[in-house]
């Protein structure tokens, strides 16, 4: 823990929340190490904090109870395609879905507000939470509200917690050699839509966050192609690169992806070029990376493409023996290792 802290002159920096390696190092060294040694109720049949998966899973009878929690802060609170309310519901629903729990038993909703926060903004956020809950079929079953003094926090923080039951637990570490990697749609839309707003860059175009609940999409794959899915992860902060690195390193395989087949909209490509940001490093809030058995890839792709949230799904890669834990990118010119972002990408000039 000291290494992390001294490295940043004793203070937490923003990059440690950016979803990249800096954040993972902070979490691993500060939280996971000690929490992971706490005895689990049913250790042989549990996924605990040490796994650093999208959530935890506890075996109950022949089912798994999946639990996940997520705090949501975002600037700006309202962005093209969504707001913090929609984000806070979708984020937690998706974390459950990534572990196979596509039916949400209940969500909690805890809101912390800054004194002076506009009531009509709060109402707008609340109604978009309700809409997202309806979309996901996920009820909010309990909640909590706190208000803090002016400048004691920035506007609003929403924490949601979700529980779900599943018979097919999906992990992020189950990839084997030869498995195919599917992305469920075009990437980097959320992060770039928010960034273009946040830095007042003044870009106009079809740049809209993809924030959406993925549980129905995932359910259709799990039921339509039983046994096909070997691993799943949603590429949120840190983007596709970060998620693939995590899947590769936990599964002990290399992942070879082909840049030319990764779905990217024209707007995302353009903004990426303008700001010097690699879309593979940018957050998604309505996409999943799915590892599937090679023989089932076509079937899964067909199911995904039949769903409104998976129309642009594509097979983007294969698990290989080369470079275990690494991600190799075929650019069309040559192959290189894909970088893992170390923090939130910033617009750059050079």
């Amino acid at each position: 823990m000291t290494a992390v802290l001294t490295a940043t002159s004793g203070r937490v920096t923003l990059k440690q929340g950016g979803g990249g390696r800096a954040m993972r190092a902070l979490i691993e060294k500060l939280f996971v190490r000690d929490f992971a040694t706490m005895p689990l109720h049913n250790p042989d049949f549990s996924v605990g904090v040490g796994a650093m998966d999208d959530g935890a899973a506890i075996r109950i009878g022949d089912e798994w109870l999946v639990i996940t929690t997520d705090s949501h802060v975002i600037h700006p609170i309202f962005f093209p395609g969504g707001d913090i309310g929609r984000l806070s519901i979708c984020g937690t629903v998706n974390d459950l879905a990534m572990m196979g729990a596509t039916t949400v038993l209940g969500l909690t909703c805890s809101v912390i507000l800054e004194e002076g926060f506009a009531l009509d903004s709060l109402e707008a956020i609340q109604s978009s939470m309700i809409a997202a809950c309806r979309e996901a079929g996920a009820p909010v079953v309990t909640g909590d509200t706190k208000v803090m003094g002016k400048r004691e926090l920035d506007g609003i923080v929403i924490n949601t917690c979700g529980i779900g039951l599943t018979r097919t637990l999906v992990r992020d570490n189950g990839l084997s050699l030869g498995d195919r990697i599917i992305v469920t749609g075009s990437i980097a839309e959320h992060g770039l839509a928010v960034m273009a707003k946040r830095h007042e860059i003044g870009i106009e175009g079809d740049l809209v966050s993809d924030v959406a609940p993925l549980n129905d999409l995932v359910a259709s794959v799990l039921s339509g192609a039983p046994g096909a899915v070997t691993a799943m992860k949603d590429p949120t902060r840190g983007g596709v690169s970060s998620a693939l690195h995590e899947m590769a390193s936990k599964s002990g395989v290399g992942i070879l992806i082909d840049e030319r087949v990764i779905p990217v909209t024209a707007a995302v490509r353009a903004v990426g070029e303008l700001l010097g940001i690699d879309p593979l490093h940018v957050a998604n809030e309505g996409k999943a990376l799915i590892g599937v058995r090679a023989d089932a890839a076509d079937r899964v792709l067909e199911i995904l493409r039949a769903h409104s949230l998976g129309r642009n799904a594509a097979v983007i890669g294969t698990c290989v023996a080369e470079r275990p834990g690494g991600v190799i990118l075929n650019t069309g010119f040559g192959k290189r290792l894909l970088a893992e972002p170390e923090g939130e990408p910033l617009p750059r000039i050079c």
């Binding site: 470079r323 040559g334 192959k335 290189r336």
Partner: peptide, 12 residues
């Protein structure tokens, strides 16, 4: 660092 010490693996 990002591209793995050896920046490029091989030509496609």
């Amino acid at each position: 660092h990002l591209y793995g010490g050896v920046p490029d693996l091989e030509a496609t």
